[in-house]
Design a protein around this nucleic acid. Structure first.
Lengths: 155, 155
DNA sequence: ATGTATGCAAACCATTTGCAATGAC
DNA sequence: GTCATTGCAAATGGTTTGCATACAT
């Protein structure tokens, strides 16, 4: 789908959510949404803050966190934690579902698509629990670090 | 398998790892391993610290973190982060594989077994990546919070 | 004897919070 | 005009680090 079309739709969804919750429709909130949906893949608060600054839209970290919580609540953003205490985020609407491969040594995160798995997980019915989203994280070593590890273990 | 038998084996594995890495076999390290394998399910650093204190084995937080890193490195412990900046851990050896259901509202974490999924994921070959372990986290609302949410959204 | 591991306290750093000023309604 | 939201700076809290002491080798 067209990127502008997607932005249009998520803006609409966000507006509905803000109205539902009785929250104000501030320019800061829409700017954050706009920038989040301009990011190609994962980002963290610092990188988002920097990229918004670079595009001359200055919001405080406090507002960034506040707005991100709203976006998480209305499922327009998904949050990830890959083992470190730095949260990663990515847009959730119209973002092809993918799992994550995380290198335990260098921290590299790769996306890994598996539609069979997606279908399987989504077909599952879990009693007494209403799933909203999920994440599959596969931890291991990327090819580069696997080589380094081998070498290191010889010492 | 018998709990004492498991402790015996992991102790053995830990010893091998410490020797491989040229690390010292200190009583603190074995005490941490022992306590970790006495925990029924998930725990965090604070709860482990408390439970070790309660059993009159006092280790510093620094040593706890240091030792946990070693146990992670040799795959005797698995680390989880359920969306908050508090890491959870659980023993990894002979611990039936299970996925996690996390309630976004109250933070409750439930285990959820699915052996078909386990088999499926483990059969996957991923190029240029060597998997060591993985985690499937399903976020949503538990039955209690789903009810509360419904009510809240009416306001 | 040597140098790694420990305990303590301080430092770190992502995230949260308190509060005065701003601005959406 | 009212009160939610913002920006700033300070606080929080899990984790990490520096360093003197203890102890495994």
């Amino acid at each position: 789908m067209d990127k502008d079309k997607i932005k249009e739709i998520v803006k609409q969804k966000f507006t509905e959510y803000l109205i539902l919750k009785g929250c104000r429709k501030t320019p800061e909130r829409y700017a954050v949404l706009e920038h989040v949906y301009s990011e190609a893949g994962h980002f963290n608060m610092d990188s988002l803050y920097e990229s918004m600054n670079a595009k001359n839209f200055r919001v405080s970290k406090a507002t960034l966190y506040n707005t991100m919580q709203l976006l998480l609540d209305c499922n327009l953003v998904q949050k990830h934690q890959f083992g470190k205490n730095l949260s990663h985020y990515e847009r959730a609407y119209n973002n092809d579902y993918h799992n994550h491969l995380i290198c335990l040594d260098c921290g590299l995160v790769e996306e890994y698509k598996d539609n069979d798995l997606k279908t399987y997980i989504q077909s599952k019915k879990i009693k007494k629990f209403t799933p909203i989203h999920y994440g599959l994280y596969i931890y291991g070593t990327c090819s580069k670090c696997a080589a380094k590890r081998k070498k290191r273990n010889k010492n």
